[in-house]
Amino acid sequence: MVMLSKRVSGFLIAFGVWSWWIWPTFLKNIWGDTRSWNHGATGFFLVHLVLVVVSLGLGTAIGAIGVRGWRAAAR
């Protein structure tokens, strides 16, 4: 088992929070782009949607690891 320091755990938590702040904003901007829609979603939109979903998933996982590390370091 690897023990994370509070400093590293804090960085991972900050990364998770940053991901949830940046990627929804990015999706909102892509949603409004004229290249995203042409009688339905375009490939441009779908590729960026996959990017956002994967990035939010990774940001959530990394943030959760940070929270677990923070709690373990506190003990």
Rank of each mutant, 00 (worst) to 15 (best):
V50Q: 02
W31G: 02
G57I: 05
L56K: 00
S36Y: 06
G40E: 08
S5G: 15
R7L: 15
L12G: 03
A64T: 10
M3T: 13
W37F: 14
G32I: 03
T34W: 00
W31F: 13
T60K: 01
I30Q: 04
W31D: 08
L12P: 00
R35W: 02
V47R: 11
G66W: 03
R68D: 00
P24W: 05
V50L: 11
I30V: 15
V17R: 03
G43N: 12
K28F: 09
L51D: 01
K6A: 14
A74R: 15
V53D: 02
V53M: 07
F11T: 11
A73N: 10
R68W: 09
G40S: 06
L27N: 09
V50M: 08
G59M: 03
L49Q: 04
L58H: 05
F45C: 00
I65P: 03
W18T: 15
L4Y: 13
G43C: 08
L58D: 02
G10K: 13
G59P: 02
G16P: 07
F11W: 14
I62Q: 02
A61K: 02
L4M: 14
N38Q: 11
W23L: 08
L51P: 01
L4S: 12
N29I: 11
A72N: 08
G10T: 05
W21G: 15
P24I: 03
A41P: 02
A61G: 03
I22Q: 11
T34A: 12
A74K: 15
M1H: 14
G16K: 07
V47A: 12
T25N: 04
R75V: 12
W21M: 14
G40L: 08
H48D: 08
A64Q: 04
L49W: 04
N38C: 07
G43F: 02
P24T: 01
V50P: 00
G63L: 01
R71F: 05
F26P: 00
F15Q: 07
W23H: 09
A73R: 09
W18M: 13
V8Y: 12
V2K: 15
V8R: 10
A72L: 12
G63T: 09
V67T: 05
V53G: 00
A41Q: 07
A61N: 00
A14I: 05
K28C: 05
T25H: 08
I13V: 15
W20S: 05
W20N: 14
L12T: 04
S9G: 12
G43P: 01
A64S: 10
V47I: 14
V50E: 11
A74S: 14
F15R: 05
K6P: 05
S5F: 08
L49A: 08
W70K: 13
I30H: 06
G57C: 07
K28V: 05
F44H: 10
S19F: 07
S55A: 14
S19Y: 01
V54T: 06
L4G: 11
T42V: 06
R71S: 04
V50G: 04
V2N: 14
L56G: 00
G63R: 02
V50N: 07
G59I: 02
A73Q: 09
L12V: 03
G43Q: 12
W23C: 01
